[in-house]
C-alpha cells in the first residue's frame, strides 16, 4: 500500500493530526535538501512535500518564489529530484513523499512519473489543474502514485463534492484567498468549509497556506486532519543557507508538533 495512505490511516487510528512540511528541492542545493529532509523527519514531520521548482510559480508568495529561483539557478529538474529521492530512500523507506509543483513540469516529464522506479514517490500535487480534471488525461499517471486536489475558500459547494471525490491521498484545503505565506486566516470560514468537505471526502482533509505559528497550527488542527507548513520553513532555510545550522528549524517543527498533538 501507498506510504501516504498508510501514514494517514495510522495517524487516524491513533487520533493524531498529520504534520506536513514543505521545502523546495535544490534550495540552497540538492545535498542540503537531502539533509533537511532528514532533519524534518527527526523533528516530527509525518509527510514531506517536495516543491518542484518552476520558472512561473503563480500560486507562490515572494518567499517560495525566491526559493524556486535559487533552485533553478542550480539547474534542478524533476530528473535530479528523483535522483535525490532515491538517495533519501536508502535510509528512509517510511516517510511519505509528495511532489508539489506546476502542470507544465509534470506534463513535460510524464515519463519520470510513469516510471517512478522502486516507488520512491507516493503522491503528486499539481497547483494549477482544476480538481475535477484528471492528471491521467494529460498523460501524468502511475497507479502507485495518488493525486491530491486542492479546495479553496472560493470553491462552490457543487465543485467541493466532485473535487473531494476525485482526490486521493488527502484533500488539500487552501486556507486563504492569496498566495503561499500570506496572513489573513479566517478560522470560522475555514472550519465550516472543512466540515463541508468532510461530508464528501473519503480521504483526510489537511489545511495549508498561511499557517505560521504554533498557535495557527493548533487552531487549524482542531478542525482538520492535519496542517501543512511551507513558507516559514523555506524562510528559515534561506536564513540558514550559509551556516547550515538547522537547530531553529528543529525547534520550530517540534513546537508545532507539540501544539497539534
Amino acid at each position: 500500500m501507498n506510504r501516504l495512505t498508510n501514514t494517514l490511516e495510522d495517524l487516524k487510528n491513533k487520533s493524531k493530526k498529520a504534520l506536513v512540511a514543505y521545502l523546495v528541492a535544490g534550495d540552497p542545493d540538492i545535498e542540503t535538501t537531502l539533509e533537511l529532509m532528514t532533519v524534518l523527519v527527526e523533528s516530527g514531520v509525518d509527510i514531506i512535500e517536495i516543491g518542484v521548482p518552476f520558472t512561473d510559480p503563480i500560486a507562490e508568495g515572494p518567499i517560495i518564489q525566491k526559493a524556486h529561483d535559487r533552485a533553478l539557478k542550480n539547474n534542478v529538474s524533476l530528473k535530479s529530484i528523483f535522483e535525490m529521492v532515491d538517495k533519501f530512500r536508502e535510509n528512509d523507506d517510511d516517510t511519505p513523499l509528495v511532489l508539489m509543483g506546476y502542470l507544465n513540469t509534470f506534463i513535460f516529464n510524464k515519463a519520470l512519473i510513469e516510471d517512478n522506479k522502486n516507488n520512491v514517490i507516493d503522491s503528486v500535487l499539481v497547483v494549477d489543474i482544476p480538481g475535477e480534471l484528471k492528471l491521467k488525461d494529460y498523460g501524468v499517471y502511475n497507479p502507485n502514485i495518488n493525486t491530491i486536489s486542492l479546495i479553496s475558500p472560493t470553491t462552490k459547494k457543487d465543485r467541493i463534492e466532485s473535487i473531494a471525490k476525485n482526490s486521493s491521498g488527502f484533500v488539500y484545503y487552501v486556507t486563504l484567498r492569496g498566495v503561499t505565506g500570506a496572513s489573513n486566516l479566517d478560522v470560522n470560514e475555514i472550519s465550516s468549509n472543512i466540515e463541508e468537505i468532510k461530508k464528501h471526502a473519503s480521504v483526510p482533509t489537511l489545511a495549508g497556506f498561511g499557517i505560521k505559528s504554533a498557535e495557527d497550527a493548533q487552531l487549524l488542527s482542531q478542525c482538520s486532519d492535519g496542517v501543512i507548513i511551507g513558507s516559514s520553513i523555506v524562510q528559515m532555510i534561506e536564513e540558514s543557507s550559509q551556516s547550515k545550522e538547522f537547530d531553529r528549524i528543529r525547534t520550530y517543527i517540534t513546537d508545532i508538533k507539540n501544539a497539534i498533538s
Binding site: 503563480i58 502542470l103 494549477d128 482544476p130 475558500p153 472560493t154 470553491t155 487552501v174 484567498r177
Partner: peptide, 12 residues
Amino acid sequence: KFVPETLMYALE
C-alpha cells in the same frame, strides 16, 4: 483553464 483553485469561481 489551468489555474489555482481559488480563481476557478472567478473564471466561472
